[in-house]
Simulated assay, not measured.
Amino acid sequence: MALAYLLASEDARLVGVASTAGNVPVDVVCSNNLGLLALCGAADIPVSRGSDRPLAIPLRTAEDTHGPLGLGYASLPDAGSELTSYDAAEAWVRAAREHRGELVGLATGPLTNLALAIREEPALPRMLHRLVIMGGAFNYGGNTTPVSEWNVSVDPEAAAEVFRVWGAAWGLEQPTHLPIVLGLNLTENAAMTPSILSRLAAAAGSATTPMSVLDDRGTRSAAANPLIRVLEDAMRFYFEFHFDQGEGYLAHLHDPLAAAVALDPDLVRYRRAPIDVELTGTLTRGMTVADWRGTWGKPPNAHVGVEVDPDAFFDRFIERVGPFAAGLA
């Protein structure tokens, strides 16, 4: 969904995709990225393989949430294209050097690759124009443990390293260049529903059958449009997961919202704060902590998203992705 939004946005030029292990193993992620880009007529965008494990702990994946291949019930065409000869960490560094001062970085998974990129090029934080991170939960419950969000929980050491290094690189000198961090407290407001999906299909000019909680599990999309069909099949699995969790027949669009904010930060209201990740707590490992009152005596190292208008986001998503999908038919 996030990639489709970026590809559909005329104000964005996607210069590379760094595949991140997390929801599923990294090689599956690579295949998904290549397949989706091929479906969208963007097979020339380079895709790089990231680390197959976090910095310090074994990898955990989330097939129960996103399906065995990370795409729910959706299937993608064989891409017919290859990964880059360099890994995802080097992809970050190459892109930052080539587009110094212009590159907007978007991290929608565990921060392993970004942390490794910073180790390779310590000046990376000062080379980017903006960094948007989907991760964490601020004054809000977690979705992995009672206090930890999934992306941070998969590799808390990487998240802690990125927050620390980025803050040290900019600090009070250029607060506008601090990373934008969008946690569950913000992204769970962007709840996709069957009715919104139906609006997307209509905007693509694609006939489809509206989804319902009464449908048989695994019912496949009837959409004629190939991209809408993939998105609906992916979303159905995600709807079913949320329904089983007692959250309703819906899906939280964490990453697409982050993609929208990467292009237009004004979609969200923020609070600046020093943030860090708990690494040693028996019950709180992976918790993202924001020092709103300045108790630590440290300068802010992030703009933390605290408010969003989900209707404005979904309107923009449909306005962009609908016509883009129509052009693929």
Rank of each mutant, 00 (worst) to 15 (best):
I45S: 12
N33A: 15
I180C: 12
G294M: 06
T112L: 06
S75R: 14
F313A: 05
I133Y: 03
W292K: 10
F243Y: 14
G105E: 01
V289P: 00
V154H: 07
E161V: 04
L263C: 13
L7S: 07
I196F: 12
L231M: 09
H66Q: 10
N189Y: 09
I118L: 15
L111G: 01
G70D: 06
L106E: 09
V289Y: 03
D233V: 01
G183M: 07
S81M: 03
I118C: 09
T108F: 10
F138T: 07
L253N: 04
L328Q: 07
A117C: 02
S195D: 15
A159N: 08
E63K: 11
L257H: 02
S51F: 03
T280E: 15
L172V: 04
R316V: 06
P122V: 02
G248F: 10
M235G: 05
Y238V: 02
V162M: 05
R217C: 07
A207R: 15
F313G: 05
R316S: 09
V29K: 00
N143P: 02
A169F: 10
A260F: 03
G135E: 00
M235N: 07
A91F: 01
A325G: 06
H129V: 00
Y5T: 00
F163K: 11
V29C: 04
L103C: 11
A88T: 01
P300N: 09
D216Y: 07
R236T: 00
A8D: 12
T284A: 08
R316Q: 08
A8Q: 10
T209S: 12
L106Y: 06
A42H: 13
P265E: 15
K298F: 13
